[in-house]
């Protein structure tokens, strides 16, 4: 295979685990060379890959139109570019793909490369179905967060060849007026464990039992749409068809009925637990473990068990 580039997220200078998996995954295609486009600081000197890597650090900035991404378009000319789904990665990949007149495939669940062709499974209908497709020419790929990397072997430690920095070009008149990061909680899209709660909690004041359970687990909190519409919880916690799509290892749904629009956002979870006092709640059909009971009784008991054993 020809040249491969990866968009990777770094945190405190280190590569995220998903980015490391992505590097060894693309290594399995035996590319001629590997280029790492790092969003965030770079503070590592080795990677697990099939060959040594050149790193381009993307400086903070607005990579938001074909004028501002021009330097990057040139840097990845002739490369196949891979990323793991996030807001920034998908926005950047789609702009790059169009600026270089290449095709892009997003929502990739499985992927292999042989005989000069990619064979790809893309999830559609919020995970209810999938499409198998093939392409010799598509060059931009966004992999789902729950992409299964486990089948791909990890290569030896390689050192970094070179690190350079790329700044988005001036030319775009857009500017950031204020950054409003969410602080103090685990970002929902990244969380491995999530506790979600719905209208069954009855009152925003009752959320302490949800937060206590989340804290005991080290989980992020989520909610159903009516709950954020009622302003009981912030909008960014709302999961579902019109909200965030999550794919954690564990999702515990408390007092949520399991409407299809809610399921659309949580289908990708590995294990689903449902706690609801109505044995007929539709969510139980989509649960790995179900408890018919009152959240006010069950949640504190689970929290206590986690704290004591």
């Amino acid at each position: 295979m020809k040249k491969v580039a990866i968009i990777a997220q770094t945190k405190e200078g280190q590569l995220s685990d998903a980015s490391k998996s992505l590097i060894s995954f693309v290594s399995s295609f035996s590319p001629e060379s590997i280029l790492l486009l790092a969003i965030g600081d770079v503070n590592f000197s080795t990677v697990s890959a099939s060959k040594s890597i050149d790193v381009i650090q993307l400086s903070e900035g607005l990579w938001i139109d074909s004028a501002s991404i021009q330097p990057l378009t040139q840097a990845v000319d002739g490369y196949s570019v891979f990323g793991i789904k996030s807001i920034q990665v998908d926005n950047l990949l789609s702009l790059l793909a169009a600026s270089s007149s290449q095709e892009m495939i997003s929502g990739i669940q499985q992927m292999s490369y042989s005989g000069g062709k990619f064979l790809i499974t893309k999830s559609i209908f919020s995970g209810k179905a999938s499409l198998s497709l093939t392409s010799e020419t598509a060059a931009y790929f966004s992999l789902n967060r729950n992409f299964d990397f486990s089948a791909n072997s990890v290569y030896g430690e390689q050192s970094i060849n070179s690190v350079s920095t790329l700044t988005s070009a001036a030319g775009s008149k857009a500017s950031i007026l204020a950054l409003k990061p969410i602080t103090g909680s685990i970002p929902l899209p990244d969380a491995a464990l999530v506790v979600g709660a719905g209208r069954g909690l009855k009152d925003p004041g009752n959320w302490t039992i949800v937060e206590d359970l989340a804290k005991a687990l080290g989980a992020a909190t989520a909610c159903s749409k009516p709950v954020s519409d009622l302003n009981w919880r912030p909008h960014h916690e709302h999961v579902g068809q019109t909200g965030v799509k999550i794919s954690p290892n564990l999702y515990i749904a408390c007092g949520i009925s399991g409407a299809i629009q809610h399921l659309a956002g949580v289908n990708g979870s590995r294990i689903v637990v449902v706690i609801n006092n109505d044995p007929e709640a539709p969510f139980f059909k989509h649960a790995d473990y179900g408890i018919v009971g009152d959240v006010n009784d069950i949640l504190p008991r689970l929290t206590k068990k986690l704290q004591t054993h």
């Binding site: 179905a129 499409l131 497709l133 989509h286 649960a287 009784d297 008991r301």
Partner: peptide
């Protein structure tokens, strides 16, 4: 488009559907 769609499949949702009694919630 150079991308060729081969087929669509319905995702199988193999959930365990195990119920735990409220008194044994722990």
């Amino acid at each position: 488009s150079q991308i060729q769609i081969l087929k669509a499949d319905i995702a199988e949702t193999a959930r365990k559907n195990k119920m735990i009694k409220a008194e044994d919630a722990e």
